Computed example of a mutant assay.
Amino acid sequence: MFPVRTGLIIWVSDVKAARNLEKYGSLHYISRKMHYAVLYVNAEFAEETMKNIKRLPYVKKIERSYRNELKTEFSGQFEEKTRFYGM
């Protein structure tokens, strides 16, 4: 139903020019202080999109997000310890 998306963290030298990344996918966030942008693209076209983005003059480095690969389901095998640390 929904396409599988993957995140790309793109380190840029010019934050104003980073707004042009919208044409490659969904631009989620731009950090003005740390000079990076978070872009979500379709997973099946991610490699091709990365090649096109690397050619841009203001792009320093591209990293792939590991969020899809992390386990987000947790088992309840550990007992809850919050009652011991309460006031």
Rank of each mutant, 00 (worst) to 15 (best):
1 M>D: 12
1 M>G: 12
1 M>C: 14
2 F>P: 06
2 F>M: 10
2 F>E: 13
3 P>S: 05
3 P>C: 02
3 P>A: 03
4 V>D: 14
4 V>M: 11
5 R>K: 15
6 T>K: 12
7 G>Q: 00
7 G>N: 01
8 L>G: 00
8 L>M: 03
10 I>C: 02
11 W>C: 02
11 W>T: 06
11 W>L: 05
11 W>M: 05
13 S>N: 08
13 S>C: 01
14 D>E: 09
14 D>W: 03
16 K>N: 13
16 K>S: 09
17 A>L: 12
17 A>M: 08
18 A>R: 00
19 R>V: 06
20 N>I: 01
20 N>M: 09
20 N>E: 14
20 N>W: 01
21 L>S: 06
21 L>C: 04
22 E>S: 15
22 E>L: 05
23 K>F: 07
23 K>Q: 12
24 Y>M: 05
24 Y>F: 15
24 Y>K: 02
25 G>N: 02
27 L>Q: 03
27 L>Y: 05
28 H>K: 15
28 H>G: 05
29 Y>F: 14
30 I>T: 06
30 I>H: 03
30 I>W: 00
31 S>V: 03
34 M>I: 10
34 M>W: 13
34 M>L: 14
35 H>S: 12
35 H>K: 15
35 H>M: 09
35 H>F: 14
36 Y>A: 08
36 Y>F: 15
41 V>K: 01
43 A>H: 13
44 E>I: 10
45 F>E: 14
45 F>K: 12
46 A>F: 01
46 A>M: 07
47 E>G: 09
47 E>D: 15
48 E>G: 07
48 E>N: 07
49 T>Q: 01
50 M>D: 00
50 M>Y: 00
50 M>S: 04
51 K>E: 12
51 K>C: 04
51 K>N: 07
52 N>K: 08
52 N>L: 10
53 I>R: 01
53 I>F: 01
54 K>C: 00
55 R>C: 04
55 R>K: 11
55 R>I: 02
57 P>F: 07
57 P>R: 10
57 P>Q: 01
58 Y>P: 01
58 Y>K: 05
59 V>E: 02
59 V>T: 03
60 K>C: 08
60 K>D: 12
61 K>R: 15
61 K>T: 13
61 K>G: 03
62 I>Y: 04
62 I>L: 04
62 I>F: 04
62 I>S: 03
62 I>Q: 03
62 I>G: 06
64 R>N: 06
65 S>G: 07
65 S>M: 05
65 S>E: 05
65 S>D: 14
65 S>Y: 00
67 R>N: 07
67 R>S: 11
68 N>K: 10
69 E>P: 02
69 E>F: 10
70 L>E: 05
70 L>I: 11
71 K>P: 07
71 K>R: 09
71 K>L: 11
71 K>I: 15
72 T>H: 08
73 E>M: 09
73 E>T: 13
74 F>K: 08
74 F>G: 04
74 F>E: 07
74 F>A: 05
75 S>R: 07
76 G>W: 06
76 G>M: 06
77 Q>N: 09
77 Q>S: 11
77 Q>V: 12
78 F>C: 06
79 E>G: 11
79 E>H: 08
79 E>N: 10
80 E>T: 06
81 K>A: 13
83 R>G: 08
83 R>V: 14
84 F>D: 10
84 F>M: 13
84 F>K: 10
84 F>R: 11
85 Y>E: 10
86 G>C: 12
87 M>E: 09
87 M>P: 09
87 M>Y: 12
